[in-house]
Structure formats: structure tokens, C-alpha cells
Design a protein around this nucleic acid. Structure first.
Lengths: 337, 337
DNA sequence: TTGTAAGCGTTATCAC
DNA sequence: GTGATAACGCTTACAA
């Protein structure tokens, strides 16, 4: 049933013997930058081909202390936007010869043990794209770690020992705020994520401040316990139940698309309201379904590909082209606001 | 900026010296099954704790020829159902001390090189959850590989050198077919995925045969070029455009939820039809949004957790509790059909 | 129960 | 440009 007929491992020594060169020469043949004569290389490669030799990365990383492995810690598989991030990260990292270790981090408490796992594999960096990695977790993690670089992707961090790669959230949210104001909305409601996240986004603060500055009255905020559409659905349904046209908000500014989609569903199916006629909605992320006919969500798209390129530069130890926390995205205007 | 202050690596030797034992004893202290006196273990663990020692898995797998690494090859990040699979796989594998290497396989051609990467990491198994891994790819892959086990997850394979873990697709589709028939639908249309996939699902064949047997007339089939909602949208919009109530199908049986959702959107937003009043729709997978108020999709849920347990048993070399290609899921009846 | 010695397949260093 | 030799940190015998 199982097929344990695996070919016995061919080592560089075997190839060396066949090609009549030293092991180290075989090694060199496999590195593009190595100084080796073209003739020898061809000979070695022919021998390698014949034996089916491929260099063993485990051994290589043991000897070189570079694993070419990046751990990707994800704690929020409910958000389809994560799929987009993972796709971009894995693809571009692989193009640059990094492999990705996907670690499913159950909760904040688990994050430390997840990082431990990563460090045991000697990853070159741990990239966090979760929502639950607050400063406490980061602190613990940094204490116990043997991880070279701790990178927060698409999220700001106050912890100086971590590297943050994200777009300028203030600028982004200001763009949204200005758009909302320009559209003439009068009674915004900000739908925020969990308030326990300390490594957070500043989106709420930025919007609220901007609104206050422009209109001279505060913008109310309601928090949702998780970045989860279902929870957003419930929260919005409860909160807006029974309000009249005049005391109901006329625009729902959401901290991300997951919340926005849950909100739209609640407005439509629980409250019988039309978006954007009765109430407008904005999101953040441009997640996969944001463009679908159900939502046609006005949202903000981060330059993910560029951000991943920034990550690659960090991994390579190069100086990034763009300030790592200053990427600029774009407002995607659709029908929802 | 970067923090390359990484603690210099602590080895088992360091711990051994501090604890006054041999390296091998340190090693033993870290394996649950090892025969070691409780006293020595405590002493060793204390020393390890003090120095911040954790065993190096790279070195361990080099020496032991077991990596405790599984490569997960995914080629279809557009499907949110993949997120569910990844979540289950990574979580349960990690519970069983396997780490997951996520490999983004761009296309069928890339699969071979992806497998090569995996083999260079000496993975214990490669798990394929893609749609493009046809028999040709598998054949090539198996030729050049140094991968111990090649596992097709949630998909059948004709290739005897691979291990397939999936539910009984015939039984599943028969369940759907019988439900559709019992509901009294008269003019089904089967919406199939790409027809180039040779390691395919038998869903189409099963439904078509069942329908033919029950109603004595054929069920038409239209293929969609990819398991992509947008493509399904276009295909359905074009195909059903201009049909009258009487010559239009009354039920759309879709090979998976991604297609079904695209189809529903097309029916609703392009053709102005109501689901299920004007036309019913069924899916397959019970993907994240299947339950949402937009779709309320009648679909089929595979027992993913059990299937992953089966995978774990395969990895451990145990005899599986359930026949690996005979898992049973359940029909989830919602409003769409 | 514990220790010793010889690998595992690379890379790094330094000669030639 | 090429080759010997010593790491890298662990596991696998086998011996004590």
C-alpha cells in the first residue's frame, strides 16, 4: 500500500566519484556564483543528472547556518484575505529561493510555542500575519527565541525588536475618511475589531480624529470581538435594530473587509436596508469577495506584492527601496459607498 | 534596524557539560519514550532551561533521516475552501509534531519543481491538495523524486504509486443526485470543472449516470475552464442567456462550491432569476461562504478532520481506521435546492 | 541507566 | 580553478 521504495540517497560524494572531481567541486557546480570552469561544471552536472543527485538542504543549512526557510505564523484562517497574502508570500518567497513553513497559531498563548517550533527549524525569519500577536506575545517570543528576524507583515508594531512591513495606515485611513467626508455622509459609525490587540492598526484612531477635526463632532465606534463576518453580522444587527432613518448612521466605516461583509449582510438580511441607498459601507483590504456583486465594496487595497518584495529585501539584508512602514495603497471605489 | 543579536546557539553538549552528563543523555531527556531516570531528566531539563537550549530539528533530521516535515502543495489559492483544508491540515499535523511546508504550485509544469524542492528538504511526505496535479505530473514527479510518500488529499488518483485520501465521491454524488431527483427537479444542468484534469473526481460521471438511470434521458454538462467563481459566472451567464422558463434548466448541479457561488451570482445578477424559485443550485465542499445568506447553498461536506487523521495514520505508518478512499461526508441541505 | 565513537551530507577554511 | 580536512548538532549503534 505505502510506497517505501525510495531511491537510496545520492550524495555529492557519489557524483564526485563518477565525475572524477572532489566533492567540493560538485558543490560549486550547483552554486551560480561559484568560480568553476564551464567544462568542469558541465561534466559534474552530467554526472549529477545521471545519478539523480540534488543537494540536500537540511545538511546545507546545518553546515551554513542559513536555512532558507521562513516561518509564516497565521492565526486567523477565517479571513479569506489571508489566502491572498499567503499566495503572494509563498510565491514570491519561492522565486527568491525561500521556502515557507506554515504555522497555524491557535491563539495568543500558542504563539510562543509556534515560534519555538520555528526556531527549532532555524528559520531565517518568522513572519507574523496574524491578529492576535500583541506586544505581550512578541515580548515573550523575543525572550525565548532563536529566531533571527521577527517580522510583522501588514501590521504595525511598537516593539523595537521586530520589523514591521505595512502600509502607512494613517495615510490609508485618512484617504478613506476624506472620501467619506467628500461624499457628504453625516453620521458615520466606525466598526472596529477587537480592542485587546495592542499591536494594532491605528485605523480607528485615525478615522475618529479626522472626522472630529473636519466636522467638529465625534464619530461613534463599536467594537466587534473578532475579525469575523458572523460576529460583525450579529453586532451590527443588534446595534442598528429599531433605529429610524434619521438616527441611524448613514455610513459604516469598517476596519477591514471581513467586518464590512458581515455588516452588509446584516444590513440587508436582518434590517432590510439597502447599501448604499439607506446606508453606505467601506472596508479595508480588498479581500477576494469585495468585488463580487453582493458587496461591490469600496475599500482600500494594500500593495501586497511590493510589501513582499520589501520582505525579501529584509531577508537578503538589503536596504529596502521603500520605508518598510510607509507603503502606499489605493482606494478602490465601488458601489457600497 | 535589523536585529541580528541572535543568541549564539546552545548545543546539547553545552547542556551536557553544565548538567555533568553526556550529550546522549541530554538527548534522551528530550524524548518522552527514552529510558532515563527521573532525577537525571530533571537535572538535564534544568540545565537546558538555564541555557535556553532547544534541540535543533535540522540536525536531528539529518542524522535520523526523518524530517517531521510535510510539504503541502497547493495550486488553487482562489478557492476559500483551501483555507479550511490548510487550517485543518496544519493544526492537526502540528498536534502530531509534523511541520508543514507550504508550496505554492503555479501550474502543472511547476509541480515537478515544487516536488523537487520538497524532496531537497527530505520531507516525510508531500500532500497535494491542488486541482492541476494530473497523472502526467504525478508520473514525472514520481520519477525524479526523493519524496517518501506522495499523497493526494481530497482527490482520487489512478496512479498506484500515490496514496489517495478522499471521501467516496461516487457515494457522495449519488447522495446529491438522489436528493435532486427526490426534490422533483426535471431539467438538470451539470456545471463541471476543467475537463483536462485526469486525476479527477468522478462527480460528473456519477451524476450523469445516476440521472440517466433514474429518468432515462441524459443530463447536459457544461465545463468551466477553472474552478473559479468568476469564470463560472461568465459561463453560466452566457449559457443561460435568453432561455425561456420552459427550456431553462430547473437545477444547476455544480462540481464544487466555487462554481456554485459563481453560478448563483450569475443567475441573480445577470439573468434576474431567483434561487431556488426559478432555478435551484447545489454545490460540493461546504466552503466558508456556503452558509451565508447570499447562498444558503445545499452542498456536501467532507469529513475533513477524519481525513486528516487518516493522513496522520499514513504518516505514522499505522493501518488507517477507515479505508483511505472511502470517507463518508454528509449532505448539507440549505435553501438553494 | 549512561557513555563513547562513528556517522548523516553539506559548507568553510585554507592550502595547492 | 580545485582539493583535503574540519566543523555543523544531532542520532545510532554498541559498549560500560
Amino acid at each position: 500500500m505505502t510506497q517505501d521504495d525510495f531511491t537510496e540517497t545520492v550524495t555529492a560524494d557519489d557524483v564526485a566519484t563518477l565525475a572524477g572531481v572532489s566533492r567540493w567541486t560538485v558543490n560549486r557546480a550547483f552554486k551560480p556564483e561559484a568560480s568553476i570552469s564551464e567544462k568542469t561544471r558541465t561534466k559534474v552536472m552530467a554526472a549529477a543528472q545521471q545519478l539523480g543527485y540534488v543537494p540536500d538542504l537540511q545538511a546545507a543549512s546545518l553546515a551554513s547556518d542559513r536555512s532558507n526557510l521562513v516561518a509564516l505564523l497565521v492565526d486567523d484562517f477565517a479571513n479569506p484575505h489571508k489566502l491572498v497574502m499567503m499566495e503572494k508570500l509563498t510565491r514570491i518567497l519561492r522565486q527568491n529561493r525561500w521556502d515557507t513553513l506554515l504555522v497555524n497559531t491557535l491563539d495568543a498563548e500558542d504563539a510562543t510555542s509556534a515560534l519555538l517550533t520555528a526556531s527549532q527549524r532555524r528559520v531565517d525569519a518568522a513572519v507574523l500575519i496574524g491578529v492576535q500577536f500583541d506586544d505581550q506575545v512578541l515580548k515573550t517570543a523575543l525572550g525565548a527565541r532563536r529566531v533571527r528576524k521577527l517580522i510583522l507583515f501588514a501590521r504595525q508594531s511598537e516593539n523595537p525588536n521586530t520589523i514591521s512591513i505595512c502600509c502607512d495606515d494613517q495615510a490609508a485611513m485618512t484617504t478613506i475618511a476624506d472620501y467619506v467626508i467628500a461624499q457628504g455622509y453625516q453620521r458615520p459609525l466606525f466598526l472596529a475589531g477587537p480592542q485587546t490587540v495592542s499591536a494594532h492598526l491605528h485605523r480607528k484612531e485615525t478615522f475618529v480624529a479626522r472626522w472630529q477635526a473636519a466636522k467638529d463632532h465625534p464619530c461613534p465606534v463599536i467594537p466587534v470581538g473578532a475579525y469575523d463576518p458572523d460576529l460583525a453580522y450579529q453586532t451590527v444587527a443588534e446595534r442598528l435594530q429599531g433605529l429610524t432613518d434619521s438616527n441611524r448612521p448613514d455610513v459604516l466605516v469598517c476596519e477591514n473587509d471581513a467586518l464590512a461583509m458581515g455588516a452588509i449582510d446584516a444590513l440587508r438580511y436582518e434590517l432590510g436596508l439597502q447599501v448604499p441607498q439607506d446606508i453606505a459601507v467601506t472596508g479595508f483590504d480588498d479581500a477576494p469577495l469585495a468585488a463580487s456583486p453582493h458587496y461591490r465594496l469600496t475599500t482600500y487595497r494594500q500593495p501586497l506584492a511590493d510589501m513582499v518584495q520589501g520582505l525579501v529585501q529584509v531577508l537578503k539584508g538589503e536596504t529596502p527601496d521603500t520605508p518598510l512602514t510607509g507603503f502606499e495603497g489605493e482606494l478602490i471605489i465601488r458601489a457600497s459607498a
